Simulated scan of single mutants.
Amino acid sequence: MSLMDALFYWLQMKWIVSARPDDEAARDTLGFFAQILSEDHRLVSYEISSVDAGRVHVAYAAIEGDVHTAWFDLEAVEQLQRDMFGAPAEEDSGTEDEGD
């Protein structure tokens, strides 16, 4: 799995866990993608850094110390949540906590 795919899937699950903190399956899936980011892509940190203009920005750092930022389309990030649970609430930003 590519780094960008892993970040995107982690982000989608992060979004769902923020909206549904008691969803154990979502938390387990979030942990699975966090493990891929850590083990396969050697990331030491990854977090939602901002949400603006229809984009979600994710800052991530490799074990070598390089820090990067990627952005993902907000509508695409929310799509899984919409498909599974209906439209997300306006106040659900998915940014309450960081990392996995």
Rank of each mutant, 00 (worst) to 15 (best):
S38F: 11
G54K: 06
D5N: 13
S45M: 08
V67R: 04
V56W: 00
Q12N: 00
E91V: 14
D83I: 15
H41K: 02
L30F: 07
I16L: 05
H41I: 06
I16V: 12
E64C: 12
K14L: 08
E96D: 12
D83G: 13
F8G: 01
D100P: 14
A59Q: 10
R20H: 03
G94M: 08
S18R: 02
G86H: 06
W10H: 08
D52K: 11
R55H: 12
T69W: 00
A26L: 03
S93Q: 10
H68Y: 06
L80R: 11
E90S: 11
R42A: 15
K14I: 13
L43E: 07
A70K: 05
S2P: 14
G54N: 05
A59S: 14
Y46T: 05
E98R: 06
M1A: 06
E75H: 10
G31Q: 03
G99K: 03
L43C: 10
D92F: 12
G31C: 07
Y60D: 04
T29Y: 03
E96T: 15
G86Y: 03
K14R: 12
P21C: 04
L3V: 10
R27A: 08
H41G: 10
I36F: 03
S49M: 07
L80M: 13
V17S: 03
E75I: 09
F32E: 04
T69M: 05
G54A: 09
T69P: 08
V56Y: 01
Y9K: 05
D52P: 07
I63Y: 02
I63V: 14
A76E: 03
F85K: 00
V51Q: 05
S49Y: 04
K14Q: 12
H68K: 04
W71D: 15
T69C: 10
V51S: 10
A62Y: 07
D5Y: 07
E64N: 11
I36V: 13
G99C: 11
R20I: 15
L11I: 15
M4N: 04
L30W: 01
F8M: 00
G31M: 06
M1K: 01
L43S: 08
I48G: 05
D28L: 13
H68F: 09
G99I: 09
I36M: 05
G54I: 14
T95A: 12
E96I: 15
E47P: 01
R27S: 07
S45N: 10
I63A: 10
Y60R: 05
E64Y: 04
Y9D: 07
Y9L: 12
V67S: 07
Y46N: 01
V17Y: 02
K14T: 15
H41C: 13
A76M: 02
R82I: 15
E98F: 09
A59Y: 02
D52S: 13
K14A: 03
L37G: 08
H68A: 13
F8K: 02
M84C: 09
I48C: 07
T69D: 10
